[in-house]
Amino acid sequence: MQSPDPTGSEASDLAAVVALRELADRLEDAAVERAMRAGWSWTQVAEGLGVTRQAVHKKHHRRLEGAGLDLRRRNA
């Protein structure tokens, strides 16, 4: 099969998945940061995202700590 048109309808459907994943990742980064800056706990953020506290901590702790957020006493 010759290579399909990269902007054809099938390719665009697949590209939409890529773009949505990227958008979801960036929205998550921004939303988690906004909640943590507003004083939310890891548990609350995890509940809001429907994931475990461990998962959200593992994914965002280093980034937010690097941004200078005071993450002590957020263990609830």
């Binding site: 902007t7 309808s9 665009s12 459907d13 590209a15 939409a16 998945v17 890529v18 773009a19 949505l20 958008l23």
Partner: peptide, 8 residues
Amino acid sequence: NALAAAGI
């Protein structure tokens, strides 16, 4: 264009 393909 990619997002538009999903109506976003």
